[in-house]
């Protein structure tokens, strides 16, 4: 051919990645953490399923949210859980949160040249009883924060969180100051608002919402009692406790 279209034999390269949509989010309180994610899984314009969890309980004090390429995400969670079980067998206790965070960083960086195409947010209770959120990029860079959104609608949610959690661009009334941590009911409201907003404006977000709540040892669960769709997932009532609240989001 004169146009040279056959001069290089063309080869279609197999793409081992895809994006499965959805959004995750975590907010730390003084003695609790909320980790949430929607339950829609999609590819392109198709909704594959309306219920595919992205948030997983790891221990009684750690919850991991995984978003991006679902196959990598599920495999990654499987391997983290396996490492935590090995730790339990070796040390007869659950791995502390900051150690899980470092474990996740090394596991992600081990795949530096064929990365897990996932954004991770780890939430839970630190050994000192404080609420903590760790967020990661796909190759393991991580930091501890008070709040973080990731996934398809992260650009919609994160600035909202800056405003409502960090009180960015707001000045406190004279003689007062902004609280460093919000109470649990306020945080839950902000999480729900974030997801209803993201559902409204992003096609890959919706169907269902799962909010995991980790309470520090000794903290009262009173503010959760009577909430619709509440379920406790802790293995023991006298340590850190894990709850989940499931809610519906719009399906369109």
């Amino acid at each position: 051919m004169p146009d040279g279209s056959f001069s290089h034999p063309q080869q279609r390269q197999f793409n081992p990645y895809t994006e499965n949509g959805g959004t995750i989010l975590a907010i730390a309180g003084a003695d609790f953490t909320v980790i949430a994610g929607d339950t829609r899984q999609s590819e392109g314009y198709s909704i594959q399923t309306r219920y595919a969890p992205k948030v997983f309980r790891l221990t009684d004090r750690a919850v991991l949210a995984v978003n991006g390429f679902a196959a990598d995400g599920n495999m990654f969670v499987k391997k983290v859980k396996q490492r935590l079980e090995w730790y339990r067998h070796a040390h007869a206790k659950d791995m502390p949160l900051r150690a899980i965070a470092r474990l996740i960083q090394t596991m992600l960086y081990a795949q530096r040249f064929f990365p897990y195409y996932v954004y991770n947010i780890l939430g839970g209770i630190e050994e000192d009883g404080s609420g903590a959120v760790y967020s990661f990029d796909p190759v393991g860079s991580y930091e501890r924060e008070a709040c973080r959104a990731a996934g398809a609608a992260s650009s919609l949610v994160q600035p909202f969180l800056d405003n409502q959690i960090y009180f960015k661009n707001q000045t406190a009334a004279p003689g007062t100051s902004h609280p460093t941590h919000l109470p649990l009911p306020d945080v839950l409201s902000i999480v729900i608002d974030s997801f209803t907003s993201a559902t409204e404006r992003h096609i890959e977000v919706g169907d269902g919402l799962e909010m995991y709540i980790v309470l520090a040892k000794g903290r009262s669960a009173q503010s959760l009692e009577g909430m619709r769709g509440l379920q406790e997932l802790s293995t023991r009532p006298d340590g850190d406790r894990v709850f989940v609240i499931r809610k519906e989001l719009k399906k369109d």
Binding site: Y17, E43, Q48
Partner: peptide, 25 residues
Amino acid sequence: GYVDLLGTTYSAPSIATGYGAYIAI
């Protein structure tokens, strides 16, 4: 349940592959 060449998995009350995902679902 469903699984494809990428290892992507999910389950749902009704599933279709290929053109079925657009026409039958």
